[in-house]
Design a protein around this nucleic acid. Structure first.
Lengths: 163, 163
DNA sequence: GAGGTAATGTTATCTTATAGCAAATATGCC
DNA sequence: GGCATATTTGCTATAAGATAACATTACCTC
């Protein structure tokens, strides 16, 4: 007997927790987390890296589900509206939100080498951006911060390669 | 009159100045600001709003110039590499850089209503982001900040739309 | 179970961006 | 100048990302 055939990088418990919280939030808000929407959220959470819409679509099709691009994009739109996921504009990919209960624009640390993404959500950054915008009499609706660089793991990798 | 010292809202003199500075910088760096590249930079600067690649291509064709998408994208790649323009990932558009002599990731205030974009380039924001990233042992390569909201003019009303 | 609304299926199309190779042009050298 | 080289541009095709428009299905309420 082979063990679990599923090779998923991010921890199943994270995914489960995220799905449970999404369920709760949607109930509170009176919106419907349908099978499709839940499954798309699950797919996003079960991968270590953020995914593109068409990659998500591929997984849906592997499920045996019918689907075309709009299937995925509509689910993504819903999840974005509910703040359950973020869109990383610089990469055209979608990632699960770690704090879906508080609406916020995303602040992300994106590793150039391994593709991993870390959500910062620093209130200090958000406040400073708000202040700088206000100083220019600009009314802020949403903030988007994407920092490209190298994560601690990939820095270590390079150091050991070099030294 | 530009409402703030740093603005992408451009006048002909801004365009001329930007082109002259680009010329100087490219000479200093030993890279070639060819006719095509100069013209693309000029097109971007002579529009009040940042432009998409295909809009730029349309203008090139109006010039009577031959061209296909790669023509534009290669020029854009060059201008991006030289820091002469920025790419606004959230809108897939390109805007002239106000401080091409100092390499920096962009910080932008994007008006949802009129589409105007202001480049902030706040050192405070850049420093804070750097600090927050460093606290997470993340090595920063480039920062990208895009704030969506409403510019002062559009807050006052939609007068400018009609005129 | 009839009627209305929300969600999904389906086809086609649009926008944005790149791959790959050929032709032209600039640059350096003699 | 004439030639070799590398860079730039022209051009065709296609990949990748996203949406429009309409048909169908599921869900809820009465």
């Amino acid at each position: 007997m082979t063990p679990s055939p599923i090779s998923i990088d991010s921890s199943p418990s994270d995914t489960g927790q995220a799905l449970a919280q999404a369920e709760t939030l949607c109930q509170e808000r009176g919106v419907r987390l349908t099978d499709l929407r839940r499954r798309v959220l699950e797919i996003i959470w079960s991968h270590s890296k953020p995914m593109g819409a068409y990659a998500i679509l591929d997984v849906l099709r592997d499920d045996g589900r019918q689907g075309a691009p709009p299937t995925v994009y509509r689910a993504l739109d819903f999840l974005l509206e509910q703040g359950l996921i973020h869109r990383l504009a610089s990469l055209n990919v979608y990632a699960g939100c770690c704090q879906p209960d508080s609406r916020h624009g995303g602040q992300f640390l994106i590793c150039r080498d391994c593709g991993q993404v870390n959500e910062m959500n620093s209130p200090a950054v958000e406040n400073l951006l708000g202040a700088e915008a206000a100083a220019r009499r600009f009314e802020v609706l949403t903030q988007m911060v994407e920092v490209l660089g190298r994560c601690p793991d990939c820095q270590r990798g390079t150091l050991s390669d070099v030294g």
